[in-house]
């Protein structure tokens, strides 16, 4: 059998520090999109132009839709805010490539380091000789 690795015993202070570290990291990543001022939900500004007293006809709403909007307590003016809201799905190639590389790189790094660590685990558990 291989030499058995004996880990150091962690004191309570170290345990508390490690727990807090992970929490701080989580909050930082939750806050990051806000601090970078990069809210991802993009609304097409062209479609946000507020119409003066819009009508159901101008909003291109059919009779059935109008009936259901009214049952929900909406008039044409209130409904216009929701009807005119549009998403913008323009793709920026650079950021798409960066994101893809980030995801692939993350998994590649993780699998590579995991394999190295896993070999140690198997060597300690089953001995170092390969039995294919």
């Amino acid at each position: 059998m291989e030499n058995i690795y004996k880990p150091p015993k962690q004191k309570w202070f170290g345990q508390a520090f490690d727990s807090i570290f992970i929490l701080v990291l989580v909050y930082a990543s939750l806050m990051a999109p806000l601090l970078l001022d990069s809210d991802d939900e993009v609304i097409n500004p062209d479609n946000l132009s507020v119409q003066v007293s819009p009508t159901w006809e101008a909003l291109n709403v059919n009779a059935v839709e109008q009936q259901q909007w009214e049952k929900l307590g909406f008039d044409a003016e209130k409904a216009a805010e929701l009807i005119n809201k549009r998403f913008d799905y323009t793709i920026e190639p650079i950021s798409l490539i960066v994101t893809a590389l980030f995801i692939i790189g993350y998994f590649f790094f993780m699998l590579k380091v995991s394999k190295k660590q896993y070999l140690e685990v198997i060597a300690e558990k089953f001995g170092s000789s390969s039995q294919d």
């Binding site: 990291l25 990543s29 939750l30 990051a32 950021s95 994101t99």
Partner: peptide
Amino acid sequence: FLGYGSSLLSILAFYIVASIW
């Protein structure tokens, strides 16, 4: 990516830093 691109990167950054740690 289409809706929450920067959140995606920020969350991945969290897991990368945590992995290094």
